[in-house]
Computed example of a mutant assay.
Amino acid sequence: MGTATERTTPPRPDGAWHEAVPYSSAAHLVERLAPRVAAAVSAGDPVVAVLDEPTCVSLRRALGSDSAEVDFQDPFEVHRMPAFTVAVRWARTSRRITNPGGRALVVSQQMEVDRGPLHWARLDIGVNVATAGLPITVLCPVDHDVADLPTVEDTHPLVATADGPEPSKRYRQPEESVVDYPPPPPPGLGPPAAELSFGQDDLIDLRRLVLRVAVMAGLDADRGADLVLAVNELASNSVEHGAGRGRLRMWNGPDVVAEVADHGRMSVPFPGMTIPPPDGARGRGLWLASELADTLEVWSEPGDTVIRVQMRV
């Protein structure tokens, strides 16, 4: 059982709070989480919990009627998305705040999901980028016995201890740590359903092609329009800021995937994850595409950039 200090909810900070929560057993984890989740519910804050089934059951029992106010999400559904997309979606939880001075709370447990060994590190780096300055707390339970604790400490500004949260002595800023956790290469998707080489004069044809594939795939009118706008933003970036020409490829099952590739080199750090500054020369189109699509992934190497957006049907 934990100590009294371990059960104390930390003060509500003004900005982002990203904390690793090591635990030694399921009971220990629920003991650590329940007071903090209950405090957020009592304050009227939005709460998202992504936990394994036994922990969900135990936490619901500990919360009692308060559990009805928690948005419990299926971890396998959440983590089917790329790590940076998950981080952005959690950051958007702050948009659900309705009370003055409110904070969002996200609790996400590290567990076995089929996303590769770098998924958790990239997710936590993404959280540090996407939540910067936002009124949101992200708690990341990690099992003492299976977690790579040095990596956890590298990517979390704070780590829970028996005496309360403490700054991680190993923490590195996202721009530094992400170098050690590169994204996997673009997965092969087979022959595309449609393909188009484009330049400035071809953007009308590009938009028509995207809409045609979206309709064939069964996207409704609003989501089809969103996909057209997202791909148009990416293609316009290729023309205006890249090599002047690019290639569009699309796949239509089971989700709709659009890929824009060119021979330029993207220098925007963490593309599409945060709103660019008003005076920024790059990044607004990527942010808009990220807002419109279900996922956005970027791979950029010298002489080659590939961007994919995906919409679920």
Score class of each variant (00 low, 15 high):
Gly242Asn: 01
Leu206Ala: 04
Gly264Thr: 03
Pro185Ser: 01
Val213Asp: 02
His263Val: 03
Gly253Glu: 13
Asp71Ala: 15
Cys140Pro: 08
Ala43Gly: 04
Asp205His: 14
Thr155Trp: 05
Asn128Lys: 04
Ala147Cys: 13
Ser25Val: 09
Leu29Phe: 09
Val41Ser: 07
Glu195Ser: 15
Asn232Glu: 15
Ala258Lys: 01
Ser168Gly: 00
Asp71Val: 11
Asp66Leu: 14
Ala281Ser: 14
Leu209Met: 15
Arg265Gly: 14
Pro167Arg: 09
Glu69His: 13
Ala225Gln: 06
Ala230Leu: 05
Val309Asp: 08
Pro277Asn: 10
Arg170Ile: 09
His241Ile: 02
Ala160Arg: 07
Leu118Ala: 12
Leu227Trp: 06
Asp163Trp: 08
Glu259Arg: 12
Ser236Trp: 12
Gln109Asn: 08
Ala27Tyr: 02
Val107Gln: 07
Glu233Ile: 11
Gly102Arg: 03
Leu59Phe: 02
Leu51Gly: 12
Ala40Phe: 02
Val21Ile: 13
Trp120Glu: 08
Glu297Pro: 04
Leu59Asn: 02
Pro186Val: 07
Trp251Arg: 03
Pro117Ala: 09
Gly272Cys: 02
Ala230Thr: 05
Leu189Ile: 05
Ser267Glu: 15
Ala261His: 08
Val88Phe: 13
Arg245Ile: 11
Ser168Gln: 07
Val78Trp: 04
Pro46Ala: 03
Phe84Ile: 06
Tyr181Asn: 07
Gly285Tyr: 07
Ser94Met: 05
Tyr181Gly: 05
Arg122Tyr: 03
Pro184Ser: 09
Gly218Val: 06
Leu51Met: 06
Ser177Leu: 14
Glu112Lys: 07
Gly44Tyr: 11
Gln173Ile: 11
Val309Trp: 02
Arg122His: 05
Met81Gly: 07
Ala230Pro: 08
Ser197Gln: 11
Trp120Asn: 09
Val179Phe: 00
Glu195Val: 09
Met111His: 08
